[in-house]
Design a protein around this nucleic acid. Structure first.
Length: 586
RNA sequence: CGGGCUGUGGCGCAGUGGUAGCGCACACGCCUGGGGGGCGUGGGGUCGCUGGUUCAAAUCCAGUCAGCCCGACCA
C-alpha cells in the first residue's frame, strides 16, 4: 500500500487529555481518534491492528473448540429481568426504549443473550458441551472513561460462553480456554500474568484473570516473592495473612498496652474518634485497635470488626454477606446499633447480637479471623466520647474462628506457601475466564434431557478478552520515546518503505523493490509522499512497523539497501536478497 | 454522585471592559532536499450555549451544556 492511496494521519502533538503512552502514541500515530468521552474511531492503521487481533483470537478460539456467532448489540430488557440483573446492573448499563416504550440494554456483556440463544436449540445432553463465542461491541457507561482505549464506553470484546452437563466437563473447557488464552497473548507478543481472581457479581467458583503488568493498571496484583511458590492473585481475592514481623511473634496474639488479665475499662476520649486520634492520645499503635466498619443494605446491617491498622475489603465482605447493593451505614442506623454517635462502635458491651433486629433490619456481625485470641485491645465503648481498653477476645467478646475480611498488601504472607512475603504490581486486565456455574441457566430455565430422560440444568463457563485493550496494552508494553513498536503479528504492515527517490531511475528502483517485496508475501507500506526525509523517518518510527527500509540516492550509488530494525534501532546495509531473507527470518 | 479546573481558527494555547492574536497545521510561490528546513504571501474564529450588567463583554454576573482531573471510604 502506498501513502498516496492510504494516507497517514500522524500528528506532532499529543492530544491534551492523553495521560498514558498508549493513548498518546495511538493518537499521534493516527491509529485512533476520539469522538466523544470514551468513544474512539479506529483509523485505518488502528482498524488493521484491531482486525489482526480479532483474527488471532478467532483462530485460537476455533482451534480450542469455540463456535462463532454474532448476537445483537441490543438485548431486550426481558432477558435481563429474567436473570434479575435489570435491577442489579445499575447505571453502568446503557438503557433505551423503542417507540413502544419497550426497554432494551446496549449490552455490557451477554450472559443473558447467550443463555437465551442456547436454550432455543439445546435439548439433549448429547449436544453438550458447547462453547459459543462472539466478537462484538460492548457498551458500559463507565463512571470515568480514561486512558484512551484502556477504559472506554464502547469497545470490542470476544466473549465466549460454554454449557456443560457437569463440573468435570466445565473444567475441561475451562482448561482449554486457559490454553487458548495463553496462545492468543503469546501470538500477540503480549506478556500477561495470569492471576487468581475474584469472580465478583458473576457468581461462580474458578476464575483467572490475564493481566498486563503496568504502572497505570487499575488493579493491584499480589505475587509471591518465592518463585517456586508462584502464587499470583488479584488483591481483591488474596487471603490476608499477617506478617509475623509486624508484631514480633508468630502468634497473632497479645501485643496490647497491658496484660490480658486486666479487666476491660472505659476511658474518656472526648472528641477523638478515629483510630489515628485515639492512637495518639493513648500511645498505643493502631494494630491494637479494633476497627468497626458498618454497612447496610435494604434488609441487613453488616457490622464488621477488624484490626485497626488494616482496611476492610468490601469485596470480601460483600461476598461473605451475599450482598449486592449496599452502602455505608447512616448515622441513624449506627445510633440504633451502638447507642452512640458514629465513631464509637466496639464489639464488647454491645446490647445487640448477630441475628437481632435493629432498626427493622437484620444485624449481621462479622469478625476478621486475626482478632481471635487477641487481648489488650482498644475499641469504641458504644458510648459517645468513650473507648474501652484491655479488651480481650474470648472474654469481652467472641469472634469465633472469624473470616477473611482484610485487604492484603505487599509485605503480607503468601496465602499459598504461607512463608514468603507478597509483592505488589499494578495490572490491566485484558482477559478473564471463569466458571459461572448454574446461575444463568437456572434463572433462565435452560434445561436439557439427561440420559435418563430427566431434565438437567447445564453448568456454564464464561471467557472474555478485550480486543481494544489488548491493542492498547501491547503499545504500553512496546514503545520508546520515538513511537510504537508493533509485534509483527499485530503491525498493520511489516515494512515501512521510506522512499527518498527523486529522479526517474530512483523512482523505478523503489517501485521495483516494492513489487518484489510484495510478491514475496511481505506487506509493505510505501511512503511515496513529497515530504522531507526527516518527516518520513519520524513518521516511520512513530507508527512503529517492525522494519524500516530506506531507499534513495545512496542506494543506487552503493547498491545497498538500508534496513533499520524498529525495536533495536539496529541499522544494516544489505543487498535485496539479504533484505528479503532478513525480513522473512526475523 | 461530590469537589476542582477548562471551553477562543483543524490542533495546542495567549488574551483583566474599548475593532480577536500566537505557534503548529492548511493553500500558493521561491529556495532547500538523508532526521519534523527557510523566506514570503494568503484563507480560516457567531470566543461552548442562554440570559443579565454596561455606552461597550472573549473579558464581569447567573444559569446551562460539554470535556478533563481528583475522590468515591473504613465512623
Amino acid at each position: 500500500m502506498r501513502a498516496s492511496q492510504l494516507p497517514l494521519f500522524t500528528s506532532k502533538d499529543d492530544p491534551k487529555d492523553a495521560q498514558v503512552a498508549s493513548h498518546r502514541l495511538l493518537s499521534r500515530a493516527g491509529f485512533i481518534r476520539k469522538q466523544g468521552s470514551g468513544l474512539y474511531v479506529y483509523m485505518p492503521f488502528g482498524d488493521m491492528v484491531h482486525r489482526k487481533i480479532e483474527q488471532i483470537v478467532r483462530e485460537e478460539m476455533n482451534r480450542f473448540g469455540g463456535i462463532e456467532v454474532t448476537l445483537p448489540v441490543i438485548t431486550p430488557a426481558e432477558l435481563w429481568q429474567e436473570s434479575g440483573r435489570w435491577d442489579l446492573m445499575g447505571k453502568e448499563m446503557m438503557r433505551m426504549q423503542d417507540r413502544h416504550e419497550v426497554g432494551y440494554a446496549l449490552g455490557p456483556t451477554h450472559e443473558e443473550a447467550m443463555t437465551d440463544l442456547a436454550r432455543s436449540f439445546l435439548q439433549s445432553y448429547k449436544q453438550l458441551p458447547v462453547n459459543l463465542y462472539q466478537i462484538g461491541r460492548k457498551y458500559r457507561d463507565e463512571i470515568r472513561p480514561r486512558y484512551g482505549l484502556i477504559r472506554c464506553r464502547e469497545f470490542v470484546m470476544k466473549d465466549a460462553y460454554s454449557f456443560h452437563v457437569d463440573d468435570a466437563s466445565l473444567d475441561e473447557t475451562y482448561q482449554k480456554m486457559r490454553e487458548a488464552y495463553r496462545a492468543i497473548f503469546e501470538r500477540c507478543g503480549l506478556k500477561t500474568i495470569p492471576v487468581e481472581a475474584d469472580s465478583g457479581n458473576m457468581g461462580g467458583s474458578g476464575s483467572e484473570e490475564f493481566m498486563v503488568a503496568s504502572q497505570i493498571g487499575e488493579e493491584t496484583l499480589l505475587l509471591c516473592s518465592d518463585e517456586k511458590c508462584g502464587y499470583r492473585s488479584n488483591q481483591e481475592k488474596t487471603a490476608f495473612i499477617e506478617n509475623p514481623k509486624k508484631h514480633g511473634s508468630t502468634e497473632p496474639t497479645n501485643r496490647g498496652i497491658s496484660p490480658s488479665a486486666d479487666a476491660a475499662v472505659e476511658f474518656e476520649t472526648g472528641a477523638a474518634k478515629t483510630i489515628e486520634e485515639v492512637s495518639k492520645l493513648t500511645g498505643s499503635e493502631p494494630r491494637n485497635f479494633i476497627k468497626a466498619v458498618i454497612f447496610e443494605d435494604k434488609e441487613n446491617i453488616f457490622l464488621c470488626f477488624i484490626q485497626g491498622d488494616r482496611d476492610l475489603s468490601e469485596i470480601k465482605m460483600k461476598n461473605l454477606a451475599g450482598a449486592t447493593e449496599y452502602w455505608p451505614a447512616g448515622e441513624e442506623t449506627i445510633k440504633a446499633l451502638t447507642g452512640a454517635e458514629p465513631g464509637y462502635a466496639g464489639p464488647q458491651g454491645l446490647k445487640v447480637k448477630d441475628g437481632d433486629t435493629v432498626a427493622k433490619k437484620t444485624l449481621r456481625i462479622f469478625f476478621d479471623r486475626h482478632l481471635k485470641g487477641r487481648s489488650g485491645l482498644i475499641a469504641g465503648a458504644n458510648k459517645t466520647g468513650f473507648h474501652t481498653k484491655n479488651v480481650a477476645e474470648g472474654r469481652d467478646f467472641q469472634s469465633g474462628e472469624g473470616h477473611d475480611l482484610i485487604v492484603s498488601h505487599a509485605g503480607d504472607i503468601c496465602p499459598q506457601c504461607k512463608k514468603a512475603e507478597l509483592t505488589e504490581t499494578r495490572g490491566i486486565e485484558v482477559g478473564h475466564i471463569f466458571k459461572l456455574g448454574k446461575k444463568y441457566s437456572q434463572k433462565m430455565n435452560l434445561s436439557v434431557l439427561d440420559p435418563n430422560g430427566k431434565p438437567l440444568t447445564p453448568t456454564m463457563g464464561c471467557y472474555g478478552i478485550g480486543v481494544g485493550r489488548t491493542m492498547a496494552t501491547s503499545v504500553e508494553q512496546n514503545h520508546d520515546e520515538r513511537g510504537i513498536i508493533w509485534h509483527r503479528n499485530l503491525s498493520p504492515f511489516v515494512v515501512y518503505l521510506v522512499s527518498l527517490a527523486k529522479g526517474e531511475a530512483e523512482v523505478a528502483f523503489v517501485d521495483k523493490l516494492y513489487a518484489t517485496l510484495t510478491a514475496q508475501g511481505i506487506s509493505v507500506y510505501l511512503d511515496d509522499r513529497d515530504e522531507r526525509a526527516g518527516v518520513k523517518f519520524n513518521d516511520a518510527e512513530l507508527v512503529g512497523f517492525p522494519f524500516i527500509v530506506t531507499v534513495g540516492k545512496k542506494t543506487l550509488e552503493s547498491g545497498k539497501i538500508e534496513l533499520k530494525l524498529r525495536r533495536s534501532g539496529e541499522k544494516l546495509e544489505v543487498s535485496e536478497a539479504e533484505l528479503i531473507g532478513k525480513i522473512q527470518s526475523l
